[in-house]
Design a protein around this nucleic acid. Structure first.
Lengths: 334, 334
DNA sequence: TTGATATGCTAAAACGTTTTAGCCTTACCG
DNA sequence: CGGTAAGGCTAAAACGTTTTAGCATATCAA
């Protein structure tokens, strides 16, 4: 049951291991192996179904052809869709992905980085959280390509790809105001990451620019890992007791909880009450009425990430860090 | 920038590599290494931040502590949620997951299996498609643990975990009939996997048992990888030109397309027109009216998969194949 | 004829571990 | 006091590759 090794092939073909290796790696010509031998060996490999042991290969060459992907939660559709796109594009270039979810835990994130490090992944794609700056810096110091996405870590000097959270948020609020809304709420999370802060700042700035006083009571910060029941209770509290005519939800799962609440309290979304969600979701298009949403350009984000990773990987020298900010799209519905 | 090796630690501690290895692997006592040495070495490891090279380890020991997960599509919420649960449980036992999506392509699936094989993953969790039976059989012949889930492959004798698709489908139809529905449609896919066939058979049998004639015109088989636009056109065709009073969608994404169609043609779901979806989705609870759905017990499925994998992994002898069928839950809404 | 160059191939080291077999003391038993 | 066991450690092989250095032989130019 033992699987074949290069040695078995060499013995069968009656040539040296070296020769087989050259052939496998397409260096036969360059190393001037005769066509007869190439053909013979290739035939044997084909027939026997031999596949090189990647582990041995990795040990010897020092690279694994694996890219580590660290995200918040694969079951969140934003991440799973990005993951799928990244996987797809990476696969085409011969790279595999190992992924893991941090669940927003600093300890888990650190552990994952170590885990990937000891697995010698060739590159890291990370949707980071505050508190792992040092660990990422160590990766960079060791010469590993690292791309951050979705959230930036200003303290770390490496490439970042993300949507323009500030402007998306600003535009949403502006569109509410253009519709004559005055009391606009923001439901966001309390995780302390740049992308969430940007969304908050966009909200604030848009109000300001339109001469509307910012009211802290209209901003609800939901604790990250809490039960949905509690989240809904807090949103209900906000929507029932303040005279609010529009609300921007800073994540799609918060918007979903919010829509459930609106259903419970029988408050209809429409001309009198506007809703915009950050990150689109199938439920929004299907909702009656359809819910407006900010779409992040997933395809473009994934594309950019892979492009950056591959260019890092194909050069030995360290490339300068790039920050790619991709505009989001506000989709107004109904 | 080279990372530390066990040798560096050995030199620093002025002991042999063997000794360091024993200590790292918790065999120090058993191999009667003195406490003084243990302490010294551990201190050095701690201070230097040394982490064993898993690749070298894998090469030597033959196992990788990695489990390969092959699914249809990580961006489908059913799979991403299962993946998250599996990842979580595996992680706690010290296993990592490498996953990849087959996109229902036999070639891609075969390629993935080979890829995982050459990476020497310790076990395989596969949501399979027809056409890869031989490849899976080869894995089994080589002594690899393989668990199938979601869809079974009757030709292959290995453990399987899945929901009771037949009965879930049967019950859904029965509930339509109990509500007085007579012309019940089924919108399903044309992928030829057991789980889809079971859903179809459950539909058929329920009609039969209730003395309703099966009508092939009421069954729509959607081609797997086609554009959503076309899918919607076909569904529209079905719903407009047949007098149908209820429809069971065999997957959640078909149900979503179906609901979009209903919205377009202004047909309301309600007492006159019943809808049940296979696999729940956030959109269904939020829809007006709320849409009934069949919930697969994700947590239980993931739990069972991991349990089976771990028991396989902890014994050298091959355990008999187990088939675990877990009941689904029909959630009737509104 | 000679030295250089090309052709065709291989031996052996190296990657970083784990593990087997065994070496040297010291302790203990009879 | 001789023999055995236990304690404390290590040398070296092995896992399956890639790659460097180099050995023959043949060809060719001068």
């Amino acid at each position: 049951m033992k699987s074949l090794s290069i040695k078995d092939i060499a013995v069968k073909a009656n040539v040296s291991i070296t020769t087989v290796s050259f052939i496998i790696n397409g260096k036969a010509k360059e190393k001037s192996i005769s066509d007869a031998v190439i053909e013979k060996v290739e035939k044997i490999i084909e027939e026997s179904g031999y596949k090189p042991n990647q582990i041995a290969r990795s040990l010897r060459t020092g690279n694994s052809n694996i890219i580590g992907l660290i995200i918040e939660d694969i079951s969140n559709s934003f991440f799973s869709r990005i993951a799928r796109l990244i996987e797809d594009k990476a696969y085409k270039k011969g790279y595999k992905i190992i992924y893991s979810s941090t669940e927003n835990s600093i300890d888990k994130a650190k552990e994952l980085i170590n885990m990937f490090k000891s697995r010698k992944v060739d590159a890291y794609i990370i949707s980071p959280i505050k508190g792992i700056e040092e660990d990422i810096q160590m990766l960079l110091d060791d010469g590993n390509p690292v791309i951050l996405f979705d959230r930036n870590l200003p303290a770390v000097n490496t490439s970042y790809v993300g949507a323009d959270h500030f402007n998306a948020s600003y535009q949403s609020i502006q569109s509410f105001i253009d519709q004559g809304k005055k009391n606009i709420a923001l439901v966001t999370t309390d995780i302390n990451v740049e992308q969430v802060i940007d969304r908050y700042n966009g909200y604030k700035k848009a109000l300001e620019d339109n001469g509307i006083r910012y009211d802290d009571n209209l901003v609800l910060k939901i604790h990250f890992n809490q039960e949905e029941g509690e989240t809904m209770a807090q949103i209900k509290e906000l929507l029932q007791h303040k005279h609010i005519d529009a609300v921007l939800f800073a994540t799609n799962y918060l918007a979903i909880s919010g829509l459930k609440v609106l259903k419970q309290i029988n408050k209809a979304v429409g001309a009198d009450f506007g809703v915009i969600a950050y990150d689109d979701h199938e439920a929004f298009e299907l909702h009656t009425p359809r819910i407006s949403a900010i779409q992040q350009p997933l395809e473009e984000i994934a594309e950019t990430i892979i492009k950056l990773i591959l260019s890092q990987l194909s050069t030995k020298s360290k490339l300068p860090a790039e920050e790619v900010i991709i505009p989001s799209r506000l989709v107004l519905r109904d």
